[in-house]
């Protein structure tokens, strides 16, 4: 309930007041609150979407009675998301999301103002997706039970959106850094999107253990190289790897004897195999195991674990 209350605290008073009427059990299941201009407020639990009535009743049925967000509500929420400081979040806004205090994340949709160099800014923002961050301490236990010491030889977590990749990654960091794997490993988190550590004013909002260094908002490849140069980590952890720059930076890390734990988007094994960058990433032998996660319906649940040999044998 604390995470939910903290996240909805960024929403306009009228919407917040209705959402806070929800029973605790329902509130705890909500992973996303979606606002669209002149459309109903949508609450996501697992893989299904629901609504909330003006009187604060949770319902799966869309009717005239459901609460709607006005364009003013969107503008008000956007102001609160960026601390009324658009200039501080411009890069983040251009990339389509803002990380909030507490690790929550607001996804943004609007009209892109582009140039040849990419997106200059985002205007007429009309859709917001507030993703509520929750830390599940101990959710990485099945990974340690299945892999044991092989966790230290590199792990790639794969799953569809909302399958719990980041949550699992975060708990792996915490466990490795706090001695749950037998040693207080020196872990460096390259947190490009501020999702793993959820740093606010430079302080990690999530529990990452006593031996973790966070390189917040670094581009992944630069963060990996910086960590290698300056922090002498035993493990580097990063989210959503996949670009060629990432592959090259990971190769540099391997040359330095550092292990990697990373996550990548892939809803299925076929999707994973079809992605060229992931194949290149696997060819670096940075990951001795690949963990496929179940869907958004059961976050952080392991579907299957492949060893590198199994993976390479199939290709």
């Amino acid at each position: 309930m604390k995470a939910f209350a903290q996240a909805v605290g960024f929403l306009p008073e009228n919407i917040r007041a209705v959402l806070m009427c929800l029973p605790e059990q329902t509130a705890q299941r909500i992973s996303e609150v979606r606002l669209r201009a002149n459309q109903p407020v949508v609450l996501v639990t697992g893989a299904s979407s629901s609504f909330i009535t003006i009187s604060g009743r949770f319902t799966r049925i869309y009717s005239d009675n459901v609460m709607r967000a006005s364009p003013e509500d969107i503008a008000c929420a956007l102001g609160a998301f960026c601390g009324y400081s658009v200039h501080s979040c411009q890069q983040s806004i251009n990339r389509g999301f803002i990380t909030l205090a507490g690790g929550h994340r607001a996804g943004l949709c609007g009209t892109a103002v582009s140039s040849r160099d990419g997106i200059l800014s985002l205007k007429d923002i009309s859709c917001l997706n507030l993703r509520i961050a929750r830390q599940f301490i101990g959710c990485s236990k099945p990974v340690f039970e299945a892999l044991g010491a092989r966790v230290l030889c590199g792990v790639l977590l794969c799953g569809s959106p909302s399958s719990g990749k980041t949550t699992l990654l975060r708990d792996l960091v915490r466990a490795l850094s706090s001695g749950e794997a037998g040693e207080y490993y020196k872990v460096c988190v390259v947190d490009e999107r501020s999702e793993i550590a959820a740093c606010s004013a430079g302080v990690a909002q999530m529990q990452l253990g006593p031996n973790t260094d966070v390189l917040n908002a670094y581009p992944k490849s630069e963060g990996i190289l910086s960590a290698l140069r300056s922090m002498s980590p035993q493990l580097i952890v990063c989210d959503e790897v996949g670009s060629m720059d990432d592959v090259q930076a990971i190769m540099s890390g391997l040359d330095s004897g550092v292990s990697f734990i990373a996550a990548a988007h892939a809803g299925s094994e076929e999707e994973l195999r079809s992605r060229t960058q992931i194949r290149r990433l696997m060819d670096t032998r940075a990951f001795s195991s690949i963990i496929m996660l179940e869907s958004a319906a059961c976050p952080t649940r392991i579907k299957r674990i492949y060893t590198y040999e199994e993976w390479s044998g199939k290709t």
Partner: peptide, 9 residues
């Protein structure tokens, strides 16, 4: 204040 990008500010 705080409503535009850095250049605008």
């Amino acid at each position: 204040l705080g409503t535009t990008d850095c250049e605008g500010q």
